[in-house]
């Protein structure tokens, strides 16, 4: 079993905090180990979002997850964004913050999509340089998530796991290993998801995401609108067997069902950690 290098504890099993569940949470204060928030929904707002966050952060650990860092962009780093992010880190006393290995736009424009990075030496050096600046500024480790991707660049030289491993070596960033994304990208590009999980730098994996997706036959879209599929549960079990207990959360972002349904999916993740005991007699 590999322990993550910062000694971040296993926080257990959590879920994404979504507005449709606010009233359920405030009424029932359910047994959830933590909530993960999308930071952009709380940054720069002085209204209900931050009020809700303060209430929830009083009772639960809150993990910060972003979609707008654009770590791979060739535009200058957006320090206005980082300043707001740092405020939020202070507010919930976060020990790390996560975002994606991607870029969202250049030439001053934001597409608000998680666009794929070329897996080249040039790109690796570029992201490394930026990651160091960002981590110095934020004063907490940045934890990068493997995104779901739908294309590969003609000039790619590295596998995604080799790229991420090199990045962790160079910058000491953490990894958010999204097990569903490994599956989605492996399906879309024809690599082995098992090999990915076997080769990813275990000591850098801080936590896991799990979610559902939409399989359109020739490709999968990472829609987060359904239950986690069996193949992804199997990969998650592989992660547990290799890495041990790591903080795990379920993302359900579209067609969001009642709280209990998402919560049941969270609890299902816990069962993957138990050794299978066959009934005798």
């Amino acid at each position: 079993m590999i322990v993550n290098k910062w000694g971040f504890p296993d926080l257990g099993f959590g879920m994404g905090l979504r507005t449709v569940h606010y009233s359920h949470i405030l009424e029932h204060w359910p047994q959830v180990d933590f909530f993960e928030i999308i930071v952009e929904n709380y940054m720069g707002s002085g209204g209900r979002p931050i009020y809700m966050l303060e209430q929830i952060a009083e009772r639960y650990p809150v993990l910060l997850h972003g979609v707008s860092l654009s770590v791979g962009s060739t535009d200058p780093i957006d320090f206005e964004y980082l300043k707001l992010l740092k405020n939020l880190i202070g507010l919930v006393k976060a020990r790390w913050v996560s975002d994606h290995l991607c870029w969202t736009g250049i030439l001053g424009r934001n597409t608000h999509d998680l666009l794929p990075m070329p897996l080249t030496q040039e790109s690796l050096e570029h992201v490394s340089r930026r990651l160091k600046v960002i981590q110095d500024y934020l004063e907490v480790p940045l934890v990068l998530e493997n995104p779901s991707t739908y294309l590969e660049w003609a000039q790619d030289q590295l596998t995604e796991w080799d790229y991420l491993n090199a990045l962790t070596q160079e910058t000491d960033c953490g990894l958010l290993l999204d097990v569903n994304n490994v599956y989605v990208s492996s399906y879309n590009h024809g690599f082995s998801a098992q090999e990915y999980i076997q080769k990813i730098s275990g000591e850098h994996v801080v936590y896991h995401h799990l979610s559902g997706h939409t399989n359109n036959g020739t490709y999968i879209v990472d829609t987060h609108d359904d239950h986690v599929i069996d193949e992804v549960w199997a990969l998650y079990t592989q992660c547990y067997q290799r890495l041990g207990a790591r903080t795990t959360m379920v993302e359900w972002d579209a067609e969001i069902p009642p709280f209990e349904v998402v919560h049941a999916e969270v609890l299902k993740a816990a069962t993957c950690r138990k050794p299978v005991v066959s009934k005798v007699g």
Partner: peptide, 15 residues
Amino acid sequence: AEREVVSNAKGMVLP
């Protein structure tokens, strides 16, 4: 309605 950014991809079906 309250805007809520999430990290998923949009349900996208190719023609």
